[in-house]
Design a protein around this nucleic acid. Structure first.
Lengths: 110, 110
DNA sequence: TATGTTTACATAGTCTAACTATGTATGGAG
DNA sequence: CTCCATACATAGTTAGACTATGTAAACATA
């Protein structure tokens, strides 16, 4: 499964939303690092996946962004969940469970 | 998650392989119906997804196909798992568990 | 006998989204 | 001063699931 892409299409939104729900205001690199660390290095969020995804999420109104500075004085774009984003997270979580559960029924059938 | 496609890209191969591993020789419609039924109607395998996937799997050497007739006298193409397909199934199953486990660690983190 | 439904396969074209590759810019370490 | 890590961004590629459409035959039923 997924030989080319490690991250199943669609699930990146869910993980970013969840990360922001947990961590409050975060910038892109922080989000990517958090996902990578929590997944125990199974999931590597490439920059070419991360930033386009964040742009799309801005357009969809799931997050807002503002420029700021990091602890070590670098410019970074800080993202924050909107109420729509929080709602979307709930949708995605339940969809994920529903679909993964269905797949597991198929692959675990005897 | 996955608003447009119900079946996460990549997982269809795995489910087809598993279905053939369980059912022996089957034709396309049987495979699709089996997946749909076992998933309790959560996953609907569209014909436009199924047949192209089976073609790709033929090219990859995961399955062989031969024409035959169904119980009610219709022509149908019967698919059978090759040793390479069986190996691929094992790969996909372990990849799936690995990736889904990683995603769950991310979305279940507190 | 004609019509519609179901089974069964196939392909063309669309679309999402994750990827690679590349580019910009800055801070800190050596 | 150079190198590396951080941080963001975009162009172009690719896989694969989808919709829409077409073929054809078996069967039910009016």
């Amino acid at each position: 499964m997924l030989p080319r892409d490690e991250i199943p299409p669609g699930t990146l939104y869910m993980m970013i939303l969840k990360t922001l729900a947990r961590g409050g205001e975060m910038h892109g690199f922080e989000i990517a690092n958090s996902i990578q660390r929590l997944s125990e290095d199974v999931l590597r969020v490439e920059e070419g996946s991360l930033y386009p995804a964040l742009q799309r999420m801005l357009v969809k109104g799931w997050v807002t962004a503002k420029w700021g500075t990091t602890g070590d004085n670098r410019r970074a774009r800080y993202y924050r969940l909107t109420p729509a984003g929080r709602k979307q997270l709930e949708i995605e979580l339940s969809q994920f469970e529903r679909v993964i559960g269905a797949i597991q029924r198929v692959i675990e059938a005897t």
